[in-house]
Amino acid sequence: MIDLESATRLCEILLGLALAQQSAEHLFMPMSDRRLFALRLLLGLLLAVGLWTTPVLGVLLLTSTWILARCDGPYNGGSDRVAVLMQICLLAVHLCRDLNAPLRWQEVAFGYLAIQIVLSYFMAGWVKIVNPQWRRGQALVDVFAFSAYPQSESLRGWTQWPRLLFVMSWAVMIFELVFPLALLRVDTLIVALVVAALFHTANALLFGLNRFVWVWLASYPALIWLQQQVF
């Protein structure tokens, strides 16, 4: 069993490390504001070690919002959105604790995060399976053939195996659609989370989406907690 306090703490450690990793990358990007990301690096580490969590989450959320405005949207797509979602929900949990609000309010805030992560898989599967290009396997062929996502030109060679890409397309769609069912039992959830982590890792290796790995992993304790609350 994992209680609410342990689950939130695990999420904070993993999210803090993920934000520290991203911020460190920004220190080496020519266009980025190095002072801002040096601050976020420090805040990420403070979050990971559990010091002054409420104000740290507050300042992280403020700076995240500023970055969203400065970049006219997320810098890094879905991973930034999940990171901001986690900051909002974890801050809500801590504010409820600090203000001695009923435990139920903390559970609602944390549960909302878990439900959104479950939806992230299911909805991603749904929008693919209703698209005939995905059902035919053509979408994944096109991702490798001409999208800007493959990290190197040699990875475009995967288009030479359309049957493999067809199988991979259906594997991804089916996994994403049935993901919510994994919450019925804790052992199926653990297996599903391992598969999901491998899926994110594959995307990181092929398309350079490394931030997705660490941010989504940071949310997994919330799913384990939710499974034990509901089932």
Partner: peptide, 12 residues
């Protein structure tokens, strides 16, 4: 971020 659409790679 609070109410995401989760439309990842829906179309190429």
């Amino acid at each position: 971020a609070l109410i995401p659409s989760w439309r990842f790679f829906d179309d190429v």
